[in-house]
Design a protein around this nucleic acid. Structure first.
Length: 184
DNA sequence: CCGCGGATCTTCT
DNA sequence: GAAGATCCGCGGA
């Protein structure tokens, strides 16, 4: 089942936690690839200076202030694409960074896109790696996650799991907030 | 396994 | 003009 827009139209931390265990599916030119979300980070906006939306509405951040259930894709360090999901109600900023996937469908396609991966678990165990594995680039910025080529689904047969909570990785502002969530 | 530095370019100051 | 939500290869333990 595709997650409905109401799933995303909630507070950032709740959505970041509940995205763990869900399946991201991308239908690209090479075929279908997918993976289970195992690591996320919350970027709630507002007082959080680490959130891109702290800069206000700009060409880059406009999508973060828009309707929930859309993708926010940006270029990191000039070389890597990072995938976020827009959350909170329309007009309120908030997004969730997808930091790692457990590869599921289209493993052959992902291996071709990630020639440097020495094992299957290295295919998508990082924010830049998972966009490479799924073939996600600027083209996907702003797309609707409830229809189209990039969607998020429930994943049946999921057994309960623990969630580890830690500070977010690789930031300098608001670096101590416990906003990173990892499926154990 | 761990730490270090280079690559590379968009965005905001 | 500088920083930045990263990755990879290298060298050492």
């Amino acid at each position: 089942m595709i997650l409905p827009r109401s799933f995303y139209a909630r507070d950032t931390i709740t959505v970041a936690r509940e995205l763990l265990g869900k399946e991201i599916v991308h239908r690209g030119d090479a075929g279908v690839t997918s993976g289970i979300i195992v690591e996320t980070e919350a970027y709630p906006g507002g007082e959080d200076l680490a959130s891109h939306s702290a800069a206000g509405i700009t060409d880059r951040t406009r999508v973060i202030f828009g309707a929930p259930g859309h993708a926010y894709v940006y270029l990191c360090y000039g070389m890597y694409w990072c995938l976020n999901f827009v959350v909170e109600r329309e007009g309120a900023p908030g997004c969730v960074l997808i930091r790692a996937l457990e590869p599921l469908k289209g493993m052959e396609i992902m291996r071709r896109r990630r020639p440097r991966a020495k094992s299957d678990r290295e295919l998508a165990n990082g924010p830049g790696k998972l966009t490479m594995a799924l073939g996600i680039t600027r083209r996907e910025n702003g797309v609707d996650l409830t229809r189209g080529s990039l969607t998020v689904h429930t994943h049946g047969g999921e057994v309960p799991f623990d969630i580890a909570v830690t500070p977010r990785i690789g930031i300098t502002k608001c670096a101590d907030l416990p906003l990173r969530f990892v499926r154990m």
